[in-house]
């Protein structure tokens, strides 16, 4: 079971490394914002899995806050690119 979760976390980290490479390369601002969005969704999943491994119920609250508030920054930057605000 421990080996299973090590493999899970490693594969998700590899996906996160690809998103980081896009964050470094990305030519426009939109690419970087998209990499930030994907990283935050990956982080929510990783935080829930870590909370399961640490056996504490309180740790789930952090990812709940991420799921509620994480999209406000992306929407603000998108409205700026559109010319609004």
């Amino acid at each position: 079971m421990d080996l299973f979760f090590i493999i899970i976390i490693s594969v998700i980290s590899l996906g996160a490394v690809f998103a980081i490479i896009r964050f470094i390369k990305g030519p426009t601002a939109s690419d970087r914002v998209m990499a930030l969005d994907t990283l935050s969704v990956m982080l929510i999943a990783v935080l829930v899995i870590l909370g399961f491994l640490m056996k504490r119920y309180i740790y789930i609250d952090v990812s709940l806050v991420y799921a509620v508030l994480g999209f406000i920054g992306v929407i603000t930057i998108a409205r700026y690119l559109e010319g609004g605000i």
Binding site: S30, M34, D37, F71, V74, A78
Partner: peptide, 14 residues
Amino acid sequence: IANPLSSHALARGS
């Protein structure tokens, strides 16, 4: 709810 909303706003803005 949140993730498709933010992506839609990003595509429209770009």
